[in-house]
């Protein structure tokens, strides 16, 4: 909260009018939409495959607790996921879709760096690169647990 000096409100704010900014907005929007559409397709397809492979899931109430209670079995390492995907297991396809969703914001930050390089904006290239580093660091820290 610096200064008691008041600037008259008539002054027009300094705003970006670069057409390249609009291009970047559209690229980011398409990336986010693409990641989301791909993940939703995988998740829906995986769910349908799951029910097709396990007819008892449609009729047996007793099956539910085994699927949603603590200790439920599902692929949660990359190696498990890869082997389950080879067998076309429904849960593995769903999990792949969930991972695509998790990767989408990370890709968005990566594409933003390219966009700022393209715009010749060094300061924002640096800022966005630091964000990506922090993000990768947090992924690394998560793995370390």
């Amino acid at each position: 909260m610096s200064g008691a000096v008041r600037i008259p409100s008539t002054s027009t704010p300094i705003v970006e009018h670069n057409p390249r900014v609009r291009q970047v907005e559209l690229a980011i929007s398409n990336l986010l939409r693409g990641g989301v559409v791909l993940s939703i397709l995988l998740i829906v397809a995986g769910t349908i495959i799951t029910f097709a492979q396990q007819p008892s899931y449609v009729s047996q109430p007793s099956e539910l607790q085994r699927l949603i209670a603590p200790g439920a079995k599902f692929p949660h390492t990359i190696i498990d996921l890869a082997s389950d995907l080879k067998q076309m297991r429904g849960e593995a396809v769903v999990t792949l879709g969930l991972l695509v969703l998790i990767a989408t914001p990370v890709m968005r930050v990566a594409i933003s760096i390219l966009a700022f390089i393209y715009q010749g904006d060094r300061l924002f290239t640096l800022i966005t690169s630091v964000v990506l580093c922090l993000l990768l660091l947090s992924l690394f820290l998560g793995r370390g647990e």
Partner: peptide, 26 residues
């Protein structure tokens, strides 16, 4: 999304993202 992506990978590694619950929610 950026903040949540970092947390989500940790939960995934811990085995706390159950596809059976996460699919309809997502």
């Amino acid at each position: 999304g950026v903040t949540a992506a970092a947390s989500a990978s940790v939960y995934y590694m811990r085995g706390e993202i159950d596809p059976f619950i996460a699919a309809p929610v997502a």
